[in-house]
Amino acid sequence: MSDKKNENGISRREFLTKGALGSFLVAMGGATVGGFALPKPTVSPGPSRRYKLGDPGKFPVGTAMKMDKENIFLFRDVEGFYAITAVCTHLGCIVVRVDDGFACPCHGSRFAPDGHVVEGPAPRGLLWLEVSRTPDGGVMVDADVEVDLGTKLVV
């Protein structure tokens, strides 16, 4: 009786077995996805990465300095301010300034003075970061906002 097949060739027992198995697998799948959803951070904890630098007058034209704690290079030339990250786009090491640009100590990537890759495994050039004016007239670097290569803040 229970093994009698209907016109589709599936018996009631088979149908129920497959249904039970299916719902079990769906439940397990859901639980697994849920289990991985938990470790995925909803909010990314971390300090703000907007750095206020104060009066632009502190940085004369020709400035080329490294903000050590923030891992950002700050430049000011005749055209304006610009900031380039010191974090290598390859695997996150901190690049150093060399005569002809930047060099990464970890895997030998080299970058031109404007940050584009010259040599090595880095998949892309060093990121240019947004430099903007604060309402009180100072300059600010936002390490979370990338801008196009060559974008300078005219002061």
Partner: peptide, 24 residues
């Protein structure tokens, strides 16, 4: 602020490190 230079992994990962120095 300062990675070691060179920053080397333990020996069993150095082969991989050589490979990532071509492409991550």
């Amino acid at each position: 602020m300062v990675p070691e230079n060179p920053a080397k992994a333990p020996w069993y990962f150095l082969g991989l490190q050589e490979l990532v120095s071509y492409s991550a």
